[in-house]
Amino acid sequence: MTESALHAAAGGTDRSPRVRFWRDLSFWGLLPSWLLMGLALILPIAIIAAVSLATRGAHGGFTWDFNLAGYRQILFNEGWTGELEFTPQYLLIVARTFALAGATTLICLVFAVPVAYFISRQPPGRKAALVYLVTLPFWVSMILRVYAWMIILGKDGTLPRFLETLGLPAGMSFMFNDGATLTAMVYTAMPLMVLPVFASIEKLDGTLIEASHDLYGNRWVTLRRVILPLTAPGLVAGAILVFVPALGAVLEPSLMGGGKQMMMGTLIQLQFGGGRNWPFGAAIAMTLMALVLVFLLVMALRAARREDVR
């Protein structure tokens, strides 16, 4: 019996006090969340959308004169006489953001699939313990997980010291480049990928794997034609969970990448430090938000289409 049928059976007609109560409850119960999200989320987003079209103030801040200068600055540099010159520097940051977020997602996927498969093949007790071990680092503060890689890769760090004992030159540093940022991004995102992938591999029907082998599919063919297609929803869920926050990464690029290897998140943050360019920062923020929402929309539509096919 469905929920509403149960209600009808127990509550009777629409006029009964029970049913009226549940209706009141749905209004009063939802009101606090509407108020909170309206004031602390929708209103600020509306304001930042407006600020992205405003004019930069003379002493920081902004004035309400609407124009597209904030967005134009992403692509063009305005010279002294007002001529526009194409500058790729911010486009490069957008490209780096996508490249690093994409690479993070791919690397996490490549490791998460075999590890999740391994965990799913363990006996129940050990399986639960391993899932717990995957979850645990996720609860450790993000900044500390990034910091750990700073002491490993940095000057006088664990890795340079270790390489020194192997006879390589002393004083090597692996910090302040895209590779360092990527290392930290992969490390912080990994549990977010393993868990959804594990959840879908766990549900996989083992007899289908056996059937594939009975039909002379080898392990590679079985992996590619049976295991991966059947676990695709979990892989997609993991990819979204990793890719979207990675696009907005701030801690990893600002600690590991140094000042010059910026991502969109750090570029936005920079514009809102004392007396910088708020409309430009708002324009980049709107761009980032639009990119994320388009990505999520495409993913949702694809998922809906997959449902239809079934």
């Binding site: 969340s33 509407w34 999200m37 602390a40 989320l41 929708i42 209103l43 600020p44 987003i45 304001i47 930042i48 600020v51 801040g61 979207v244 926050p245 696009l247 907005g248 701030v250 969109m264 998140g265 936005i268 943050q269 809102f272 708020w278 920062g281 708002a282 923020a285 709107m286 980032l288 938000m289 994320v292 929402l293 999520l296």
Partner: peptide, 22 residues
């Protein structure tokens, strides 16, 4: 609406809230 914060990049929400508060 309840899940909205999960859909938006945190940095966007952070600077938006900063503008509102100022």
């Amino acid at each position: 609406i309840v899940n909205l914060p999960l859909l938006l990049p945190e940095i966007v929400l952070a600077v938006a809230t900063l503008i509102l508060f100022s």
